[in-house]
Amino acid sequence: MNESLTRPAFAYSSGLQPGPKMFSDLAPLTDAVTLSVDGQPVRARAGETVAACLLRAGVPYNRLTPVSGAPRLPYCMIGHCFECLVEIDGIGNRQACLTLVRDGMKVRRQDGAPPALEPSVP
């Protein structure tokens, strides 16, 4: 499988470098779908959550906090902590750990508070 599709080099607008890869697949991806993450194609296992897909891809953060710009990745994975918030198909602050991947889904990581009214799909 094409490694560049599971772990693409993201454009790090904040200057963040990709961290060490924290998760790897138990088995090669089969039955995969393709999402757009910040405009780049990323493969995901059908039926998994957006949060799992982003962790496999090795993104250094799902969101930068609105208060200090600190990077955050998922903490609880069961819908309680809200650290995994991303923009999905133009709607901000969606819980990536509760949203299943879909072919063609457009995911954008969040930098601070998402704009409430502007259309922001790339």
Binding site: C76, M77, I78
Partner: peptide, 25 residues
């Protein structure tokens, strides 16, 4: 505890069960 790379045990189990992902490093 807010740094990326701090997760709960439950989160890692969820990734095993539903994401077929295992931690590495």
């Amino acid at each position: 505890w807010t740094l990326p790379g701090v997760m709960t045990a439950g989160a890692v189990q969820t990734l095993l069960k539903a994401g077929h992902l295992k931690p590495s490093g």
